[in-house]
């Protein structure tokens, strides 16, 4: 769908910096109000969000199958670049005042017993921890512990609460892959054994329920 004011472009397969250059050139025409671009990967999305910020146009993005659809729009209506949370990295990974406790979850149950009951118990444990104001530096999940992840998991809310409170909630990538959860665990929450070792080494205290 292209007309005098709207342009749709397919920038897949182009090597950096080509997608940014082409989009910038399109916007050099003052008549163009809106560019919708299809790009290969997250890097192009990030670079186009920076371009949007510098030329002061709105920016929106959503996944489109294995690709990404990016909309840059001159007039309002688009999300202003200032509001794009995903381009902002975590700015406070180190806070002296933050608790240095790490919660290491290596199975999806609290103790051994009836599976369903033990899972429920683990959820109660995390919820109680959150409600009583404990804010660990990170919650690390490995082995069947990674099954806590995913939007439809009963643990989704409490893990999300912890994350919003500044806690790093991370799952072992190898485990996520092994248990076939790669599609539902967000990329930025996947970590590796190296990082897990670093967290544990730097921890003041490690809690394993």
């Amino acid at each position: 769908m292209s007309d005098d004011h709207n342009v749709t472009v397919d920038l897949r397969g182009l090597v950096c910096p080509e997608p940014v250059i082409r989009t910038k050139k399109i916007f050099e025409n003052n008549l163009i109000e809106r560019v919708e671009a299809l790009v290969d990967d997250e890097v192009n999305v990030q670079n186009l969000s920076r371009l949007a910020r510098s030329i002061k146009v709105g920016f929106q993005t959503k996944p489109d199958g294995k690709y990404h659809r990016v909309v840059l729009e001159r007039s309002s209506g688009g999300l202003q670049p200032e509001n794009i949370v995903e381009t902002q990295p975590q700015t406070s990974t180190i806070k002296e005042e933050r608790n240095s406790t790490v919660v290491l979850i290596t199975k999806n149950t609290f103790g051994e017993g009836d599976q369903e009951f033990s899972e429920h118990l683990l959820n109660i444990f995390l919820q109680t921890m959150y409600d009583s104001g404990h804010r660990p530096r990170s919650i690390l999940m490995a082995n069947t512990g990674v099954k806590l992840m995913g939007p439809n998991s009963p643990f989704a809310k409490v893990l999300d609460d912890f994350q919003k409170a500044g806690c790093d909630v991370l799952a072992c990538g190898l485990c996520v892959e092994y248990y076939g959860l790669k599609e539902i665990v967000p990329k930025e929450q996947i970590t590796n054994m190296f990082a897990i070792c670093e967290y544990l080494d730097a921890a003041g205290k490690v809690i394993t329920p």
Binding site: V20, D41, V43, Q46, L48, R50, S54, I55, T93, E198
Partner: peptide, 18 residues
């Protein structure tokens, strides 16, 4: 600022931002 950032810079960000 204009988005001329190499892919590996994002890779480094992922690796080291912690």
């Amino acid at each position: 600022n204009e988005g001329l950032v190499p892919a590996a810079a994002y890779g480094n960000r992922n690796s080291f931002q912690k």
